[in-house]
């Protein structure tokens, strides 16, 4: 196996670019093959102060940034970790810097840092690990203004489109106001704000891609729907 890898290495290096703008353009072009999609998600939340059962929901996406979430029952999804499009990290003006290549889970990835040029968005600094072979993001690490830092690890399985089959979202935030709701509770009174971390594991299944979702779907309102406008971040 090592031998084959060694043999292939020159070819891969040849196909790879060190230009972050090219890498990102390729990423965008690949994703633009997807006009719209719907997918079933299963969400497992692992946060110390949140005891939540496994949840299921259906996410609808339409280019450029229309998102609609529907669920039979209750579902909570991390705002920052609601990965629907790689473009969500690239909405505002930014500078991209190529850092290096790394191997992630056996795949070669180019590490790109995204630095915003203004204060509009919530993201302060984002690092992306991009698989140039498939033109997908394998990993994202980001620091936000309001919600601490987070990382996303994305797996793609053998999806035809650049859409993830599973994702692990890990966040670190200051536990401050989050737990002030229970005034009578002794534990919350005594505990001082502390850093808390949490994991959300999302698996995606039953993608239906490019079947032409109507715009009206994204305007539905009701208890079991949630429309997320472009200001997710």
């Amino acid at each position: 196996m090592k031998f084959f890898t060694f043999l292939l290495l020159p070819f891969i290096i040849f196909a790879q670019s060190n230009n972050p703008d090219v890498i990102i353009r390729n990423l965008k072009n690949e994703f633009n093959k997807v006009k719209d999609y719907s997918v079933d998600v299963n969400i497992k939340v692992d946060v110390s102060f949140l005891k939540v059962p496994e949840m299921n929901a259906k996410i609808y996406f339409k280019q450029p940034d229309k998102i609609h979430i529907q669920s039979e029952g209750f579902a909570m999804l991390p705002r920052d970790g609601l990965y629907t499009s790689p473009l969500s990290f690239l909405k505002n003006d930014y500078t991209a810097i190529y850092v290096r290549d790394e191997i992630i889970d056996g795949s070669n990835a180019s590490v790109i840092k995204i630095i915003p040029l203004n204060d509009k968005g919530d993201l302060v600094l984002t690092t992306m690990w991009i698989d140039q072979k498939r033109n997908v993001i394998l990993k994202v690490e980001s620091t936000t203004k309001t919600n601490g830092t987070f990382t996303m690890d994305l797996n793609y399985g053998d999806n035809k489109y650049p859409l993830p089959s599973s994702m692990l979202f890990v966040f670190n935030a200051e536990r401050s106001k989050l737990t002030q709701f229970d005034r009578n509770d002794e534990n919350s009174k005594k505990k001082k704000p502390q850093m808390i971390s949490g994991k959300v594991y999302i698996s995606y299944s039953n993608y239906v891609v490019n079947k032409g979702l109507p715009d009206s779907l994204f305007e539905q309102k009701g208890k079991n729907n949630s429309n997320i406008s472009s200001d997710v971040h």
Binding site: R79, L82, N147, S226
Partner: peptide, 12 residues
């Protein structure tokens, strides 16, 4: 407070 971090869907 948690709605800042999480999107809620469903009938709570």
């Amino acid at each position: 407070e948690i709605q800042q971090t999480f999107i809620f869907v469903g009938n709570l």
